[in-house]
Design a protein around this nucleic acid. Structure first.
Lengths: 122, 122
DNA sequence: CCGGATCCGGTCTGATACTG
DNA sequence: CAGTATCAGACCGGATCCGG
């Protein structure tokens, strides 16, 4: 009987402010969410593929982020086989729109952090 | 897994990957940093002004973020009075360039989170 | 009063073991 | 392979304290 799942995002009703920046950060402003979005944009779709990224996301964090992003309507999951059930994860249009944010990150990072490269493309 | 290190990361992890997204997230990927940048872009400059934002950043967190962002070359501080000494914080060109990232957030947030507005200049 | 620094309890993170 | 359970410890954030 577990509880106390990792829910840090305020619900809309308890939003900190109407600021679009603050609210977007409440959705994808943590350390891992945008990296998951980046990988999905690159065509990865299975749990294993997402785990394999060089940043090394832990399995429980990945599972939690996928769950959270799906609840936010950013990620969609569809079973592609049964017994054992397996899901293919993908971005909804809402999630794919975050590609613009990623591009802004890439642009800033490439310019201001030496040695970085774009691992995402639109 | 192998990696190279090119980011001085005051906070949690060391490096993660050469990905510009991941490295930028290591710098400003926490819950508060971009909100501080937003406020500075809007012309706020004193500790008190930054504290007054509707999101309610705690004093210790604000002090820590300012210190960290200054170490990253994103924020500059200059004393504007002595006895007691007071600092005016501002963005470096590197920090101001994050405005592009903020605009991407605003654009996404306004479109996908109902009720949000742009609290940052366009 | 202002700009922080410090303390401290609770929450979240993340490595690993474990299950189906 | 795709997650879930566990748990120690890092981190957040509220409250408080302090020098100027």
């Amino acid at each position: 009987m577990t509880f106390n799942m990792q829910v840090t995002n305020p619900k809309s009703s308890e939003r900190r402010s109407p600021c679009a920046v603050a609210c977007t950060l409440d959705v994808v402003g943590d350390k891992w969410s945008l990296l998951v979005v980046r990988d999905l944009l690159q065509g990865k779709s299975t749990f294993k593929e997402l785990l394999a990224s060089p940043e090394g996301i832990p399995t429980n964090i990945l599972a939690d982020r996928l769950k959270r992003l799906e609840a936010e309507g950013i990620v969609a999951s569809a079973p592609y086989q049964e017994r054992p059930v397996r899901h293919a994860y993908s971005l909804t249009p809402k999630g794919a729109a975050l590609g613009e944010v990623l591009l802004a990150y890439v642009s800033w990072g490439k310019k201001h952090i030496p040695g970085t490269i774009a691992l995402v493309r639109s």
